[in-house]
Computed example of a mutant assay.
Amino acid sequence: MYFFLKYLALSDLCYTSTVTPKLVTDLLAVINTISYTSCMTQLFAMHFFGGIEIFLLTAMAYDRYVAICKPLHYTVIMSRPRCNAMVIACCAGAFLHSFLMFLLTINLPFCGPNEIDHYFCDVYPLLKLACIDTYRVGILVVANSGTMGLVAFVILMLSYFLILYTIRAYPAESRGKALSTCSSHIAVVVLFFVPVLFIYIRPTVTFPEDKVFALFYTIIAPMFNPLIYTLRNREMKSVLRKVWCQKPFLIGRQIF
């Protein structure tokens, strides 16, 4: 689990870095502009790191399924070479997804006024600015982003259904431990996938609420990932408790 968590933390850092700095700059600036090259770069990077996050969450769900449903075979099935191969496959799949989204958008003609009704460059707001009929392009976007998110979400739910089916015969203590292990991952999945599916599973249409939903999977979910995972960890809670208890003592020694 920690092997995948470190890559998830890295992807979260890169993912939010494609959106948050520009958002903060626009909030402080009087005139909010972005060049065409920067817009296309932001589009590619956002879908690349977002795709990595989706595939990593799926790989982590499979890791939890093997750990709980096949514990005696865990070290054989989830060997280090296989884990490395899964991370490489996550990056390759995310690059393919992002490259296809980039190709669908970069060839669109924009006649103006080129004003994006969003806080970052995404596919649907850009399709709204195109001078041609974008119905077919929108269908391809749904087939790419929407299908990828839906398939990953179904696999995740299937893995947790199998986990719940397996632990039904466990003793209460073991069942509680298994559920505690998975609860943090389920929270992250719901916080990330529900807004993604709301935006990308429908046809080419934009709503004012899209910006609010986009905040969840671009900023809020990556920001809460470390907090959700670390506070569910017994060792991390023990360390935080020790630091918190020692703080008044250290302050008292410094004052004295």
Rank of each mutant, 00 (worst) to 15 (best):
F110L: 15
C83I: 05
L103V: 09
M78W: 10
H118V: 03
M78A: 15
I77S: 09
A89Q: 10
F95C: 11
D117C: 13
P113I: 02
I77R: 14
M86H: 03
F102D: 02
F102C: 03
M101Q: 08
S98P: 02
R80P: 10
P109H: 03
L100D: 03
F102K: 02
A89H: 03
L96E: 03
N114R: 10
V87I: 15
D117W: 03
L100C: 11
F110K: 04
I88Y: 09
R80D: 12
D117I: 11
M86T: 04
D117N: 15
F99D: 05
F102W: 10
M101A: 04
P81R: 08
P109V: 12
I116K: 01
I77L: 12
M78I: 12
G112D: 06
C90N: 00
I88Q: 01
G93A: 10
F102I: 03
H118Q: 04
A92F: 15
A92S: 09
F95R: 00
G93L: 08
R80L: 11
I88M: 11
N107E: 12
I88W: 05
E115H: 10
C91A: 14
A85G: 11
A85W: 14
M78P: 13
A85F: 13
L108Q: 08
I88G: 04
E115Q: 12
L103D: 10
I106S: 15
G112C: 07
C111L: 06
M78C: 15
H97S: 07
G93F: 05
F95D: 00
T105K: 01
M78H: 10
R80M: 13
T105H: 01
C83E: 11
P81N: 05
M86P: 02
F99H: 06
G93P: 09
I88H: 07
N107D: 12
L108T: 02
M78K: 09
A94L: 00
L104C: 13
A85E: 13
T105N: 02
H118R: 03
C111T: 10
T105A: 12
A85S: 14
H118M: 11
C111N: 07
C90I: 01
P109D: 11
M86L: 12
S98E: 01
H97F: 07
D117H: 12
A92Y: 05
F99A: 10
L103H: 03
P113E: 09
I116M: 04
M86C: 08
T105G: 12
R80T: 15
I88D: 00
R80S: 14
R80I: 09
A92C: 14
N84K: 11
